[in-house]
Design a protein around this nucleic acid. Structure first.
Lengths: 197, 197, 197, 197
DNA sequence: TATGAATGAGCGTTCATTCAT
DNA sequence: TATGAATGAACGCTCATTCAT
């Protein structure tokens, strides 16, 4: 076997092990949720050694970043497949799948906050990437349907993100969790994207 | 000693212990920062037992809430003493002391997010109070100087908070930390409060 | 309860927990030997948390030091109870219980070497103490029965230790393990303590 | 290329790889010491895979045995080049280079003890060989200059080794490290080799 | 021989929190 | 109120060694 072929074969094995770990983790989460995921359980199911886990992921958090990032990407795929929303109401509606996932567990939202808007480490992880992608999706919508013309679509998209986070945050807040996130988001977006003349 | 006098003496001791704990915690933080604060170290300096700590604070988080809340209040005192800003630029400027504190440590920002917009527990703690107070201060500014009239001052204030958080978040994000928070905040506020006709 | 009484009561509990751990460890060793001892197994049997173990012993090695040191002390008690040996042969014989224990497991001898003659850390642990005690016992013998008079009893005792270690070492050595330690020790001691005129 | 030539070429490559590994290990040791040597680091510097290391050395210990054994041999070369010592003082002095190396690191002394006087494995490795060689050197000295005549030169040499180890051990012991090894060794050797009449 | 991903078994750690006294 | 020993449940780590390719 040539060196090149060997390198490829090796990489294949690596990829396979990584996939086994990710699959096992996903399975655990499906059954018990994100917060309940234990590294021990994951390696047990994946049928690999604990050391192998840490050879593939720096720590548990890195795996969470992968998994949650992947899930957000799946939600963004759904969102992207939709036609560009024509109204604020449609836009709020379109963002609901993403918001639903982000609010499925308090722990998930914490991980997202920690990795996205506020990544301390230099490496841009999967979740941080999705925030970029989300901004792009919204930006594209705003090209098709420019609600405001005084500021760039990019800036409008940043605002949409800020209000999405605000809406979710308030949902977890005991003072304000009576208003559904969808309604709150719509209120914010209307004020942000269609200021009265 | 009368029963009443005794009760008073006891209360005095309680207050004294509490003060010792708060002082010790503040001292530790001054030297090593918020994240590095350990209950162990605090009780050691305060000269009390570990159990005593938890007789005074529900948990470590409650102490953090106190300390960080107090610091934010101090910043709000400064902000409140200022005259109502006449321009967006002045408003951004006025909010800087608060932002500076909130960005002093990644950990501090996390605690703030957790207790403010996203408090899971029912009790409204010191930090949550400061968010309320901040909204009030901004609302008052907007009564004096109504940048927008199509939406309520309260809603405008909520937006100001959302953008403050967004600006700070992006500051911690490696992708976007080249733009200073003050500039970013001003951009956001201008777009939010003075939409072009 | 007074502060003093409280402190005493607390210490009692501490002592009790420590005893539970030592007993559990001893039990495991009796069944499976020193090398096979696992911290996990010890805390399980002692019925305490793992954290408690490390609150009592710096690490597994520190516990080993305690246990093996205690066992050597037991052997020294036996040795000390004997009348001072009158001949080299009797002296070699007297030291046999100690040698037997020290050679019961290769691992035990390694731990002993590491903690005794060659302790790197400043604290004198239990095993190091026993080496001092052993020297004292032998020194006392040599006061009663001075085989040599040209050098001090202390120096003679140091030599006895050196030859004991040498005899044991060679016993573990594949090249020389045909000669029984007792015979080798006797040869050494005769040459060391009763040089021909 | 003939089969023979091929075999030779292969052998050449093998030797080259082995040399690369030894050089790399020596380099790591020069920089960080024996204890800090990691197989990972060695193969990295040698530019070979980890598995290759174990194709050349049974285990890490075997490499250590090689390296430390080689160094002791170098010290013995120096010792052997000296004229036979005429006095105990000269003999102690002559052994100093060896002792200096053996005390350079606690870890080195442990490895030496493990492989020499106390080798568990059947094969006589480099370090064990050096102990044999050291005994021979000392035995030769004692032929030239027979300090004692009541016991064989071989037995005297064994005693010299025992006392060398004892002197080194005590040097690492916090209780006794105030006396320099050279002085202690001389005291021992005088008592061992020139007992007063 | 060479490769390097995978192994693995246990240690040490963490440290906020509890609870019997 | 005060005490402080005990808890606990994973996590992270170690790193020499193996083995399928």
């Amino acid at each position: 076997m040539s060196k090149q072929a060997m390198a490829k074969a090796v990489q294949q094995r690596t990829l396979k092990t990584r996939a086994k770990l990710l699959d096992a983790a996903q399975a655990v989460i499906s059954e018990s949720g994100y917060e309940a995921m234990r590294v021990e359980e994951v390696v047990l199911r994946a049928g690999v050694a604990k050391g192998t886990f840490f050879a593939h992921f720096k720590d548990k958090d890195a795996l969470m970043d992968q998994l949650i990032g992947a899930e957000i990407d799946r939600q963004l795929d759904i969102i992207e497949a939709l036609p560009a929303p024509k109204t604020i109401s449609e836009m709020s509606e379109a963002m609901m799948p993403l918001i639903t996932f982000m609010t499925c567990e308090r722990y998930v939202f914490d991980v997202i906050l920690r990795h996205s808007g506020a990544a301390a480490n230099a490496e841009i992880g999967p979740i941080a990437m999705t925030f970029g992608r989300h901004a792009e999706v919204v930006t594209k919508w705003l090209w098709d349907q420019p609600f405001r013309k005084d500021i760039s679509a990019e800036l409008q998209a940043e605002g949409v993100q800020a209000f999405m986070v605000q809406a979710i945050s308030l949902m977890f807040c005991s003072l304000h969790n009576s208003v559904a996130p969808r309604e709150r988001l719509e209120t914010y977006l209307r004020a942000w994207l269609t200021p009265a003349p």
